[in-house]
Design a protein around this nucleic acid. Structure first.
Lengths: 336, 336
DNA sequence: CTGAAAGCGCTTACAG
DNA sequence: CTGAAAGCGCTTACAG
């Protein structure tokens, strides 16, 4: 049997297609009785609405998300929060993983734009070129919001944690604990988070009369191995810090495993995953609120879709430091 | 300026809309010269194809994925593999997280069907009702493939690891290592993986003259806390096993943390994440190949889309045991 | 409160 | 190799 169309419903109810369409939109211009009759027929005849065919409607109710990947719990949580918030707003989500490849990111965006998404949420790949991104988005003028990472010089709505502040919290904490030589294993070289956090860390250390030794600032991959490799690099070079600041909790776990043989060295990082508190020893970490970031991104996008003329806005979430054993002197540890 | 339409390109090139449409499809029925001319105009005029408007085309080139969540690395890897494979096949991905709520899963599927996806990949939520799922899918006859989890009595293409075999591998290994009292902290009660693995574990233990004591088979949540809570439950009940089989590596990490005070108890689990080998002690785990699962799922779906009349197929991946210190007697440990 | 008509931006036979 | 015409399944003014 052929699929049931809107015109079949209209015929069955003895009304026009326009009326059925208005029922679909729950318009106030159709009487209650007619609505009931039409809905009953839709249900009975197994009608499935074809959203694609609403060519004249201004919206598709699809939003696209292009993000790096979900191997990292921060990005996994962020993706889920975005999906949940968009669902609640009535959108269906198109998703693509750039895997931090700017060219793939461009291809994914172009594909989504061909599907006429109402808006785009973008976690920019490392090395995203401002001009290229502008070109990709300009042809369609699709509303968009940047999430979790900036693109230098690119003017757009943005949501993310305040990375400078996050690193300041860590730097001040380590200085107050008395650590002197702090290493920064802060993630990939192209990452805006790395640059922002390095700046914040340096600032906080200098405010406490310390320096961030350039020899102790090392680019790392974002995973467990990145932390371990950077530690091995430091130790091999005879550069032994007394505290290490990592890119993320996962990186910190790798670093801590590699540091096990090197005596007691403090470790702090960013994300504050549940695993940070449960680690042995418990890991000092700065909460970066991916769930809240995702929710705010969805709200900013909705506002942007509703009014494309809005001035662009940046939402910075305030990070929160959770000091734990991994950076506390023995006398400051809680004795649980 | 108004968006450029296909008819604008046609006018600019002095050809019909049909010809431009054929160029878009790279049809062999258009001369090389015309193609060049049309493509140049598209590029110059900033044309953006509107896929929605291809109402008469049989395909949308959109595929939907409804999965549980990506908090667990297995599902994160699976989602990424699916996205990558579908992209390579030319599809754009609609994604929804059911969060293991069958009602939400139904809503997500209905939404995707309204968008006329060419096919659906489904990681069924716990407690998915066969009849309800059939009803949701039947109205549209959308091709679909089940991934990683079965639905009892639901006939469809399926890809996943062979859970029975996976648990047999673990059971045989533990028995051969001499463990006598094996506990099974095998995940949520509604999970098909749990049921299949419990069956495989029992079978292997019995083949080695041991039993799986029902008092030692405990439902757990799929996360870290699930492992810790189940261990505490066992210890509080005075049921001390000499080996514990966990639902996943993450669950195992929680269990190991909770077991730390209880002396040496062997732990094994499923997934074989990179973190398993790096854990202290290294964790015995069965690899379950999420990346391969995702790839195979995309291929099965493509075959199903190409020929809906195909008989349904089940692809079972053979798991692989990686024995490590967490289950090896001291004398069997490698001395690295 | 409802309908007839035009339209959304493409694709698909069909004809030449 | 190309075009004129009809069509995909909806929505939107407009008119009454």
């Amino acid at each position: 049997m052929a699929r049931v169309r809107l015109k079949d419903i209209a015929a069955a109810c003895g009304v026009s297609r326009a009326t059925v369409s208005l029922v679909l939109q729950d318009s106030g211009r159709v009487s209650h009785g007619t609505k009931e009759r039409v809905r009953e027929a839709m249900h009975r005849m197994g009608y499935v609405y074809d959203r694609r065919a609403a060519l004249r409607a201004s919206r598709t109710m699809i939003v696209g998300l292009v993000t790096t990947h979900v191997r990292n719990p921060y990005f996994a949580e962020l993706s889920m929060a975005i999906e949940g918030a968009l669902y609640d707003q009535g959108y269906t989500l198109l998703l693509g993983y750039s895997r931090d490849d700017a060219a793939q990111q461009a291809r994914l965006l172009e594909g989504m734009i061909e599907h006429r998404v109402d808006g785009l949420l973008i976690v920019p790949a490392y090395q995203t070129d401002r001009a290229a991104l502008e070109r990709t988005l300009a042809a369609s003028a699709t509303p968009h919001v940047l999430v979790a990472r900036h693109v230098e010089g690119f003017d757009a709505d943005y949501v993310g944690v305040d990375n400078v502040r996050a690193a300041e919290l860590v730097g001040a904490h380590l200085a107050e604990q008395g650590y002197q030589r702090v290493a920064f294993l802060g993630g990939p070289a192209g990452s805006t988070a790395r640059a922002e956090r390095e700046y914040g860390l340096r600032k906080a250390l200098e405010a406490h009369g310390r320096e961030l030794d350039p020899a102790l600032s090392i680019a790392t991959s974002a995973d467990r191995d990145g932390g371990a490799a950077a530690v091995q690099h430091l130790l091999a070079a005879g550069q032994v810090p007394d505290a290490v600041v990592c890119y993320s909790d996962v990186t910190a776990f790798g670093a801590m495993a590699a540091l096990r043989s090197a005596g007691t060295i403090a470790v702090a990082s960013f994300d504050d995953l549940p695993a940070a508190a449960q680690h042995q020893p418990p890991l000092t970490s700065v909460a970066t609120f991916p769930a809240q970031t995702g929710l705010d991104a969805a709200l900013l996008l909705q506002a942007r879709i509703d009014d494309p003329a809005l001035p662009s806005r940046s939402v910075l979430l305030t990070p929160r430091l959770h000091a734990r054993e991994s950076t506390l002197g023995p006398n400051e540890r809680s004795t649980t």
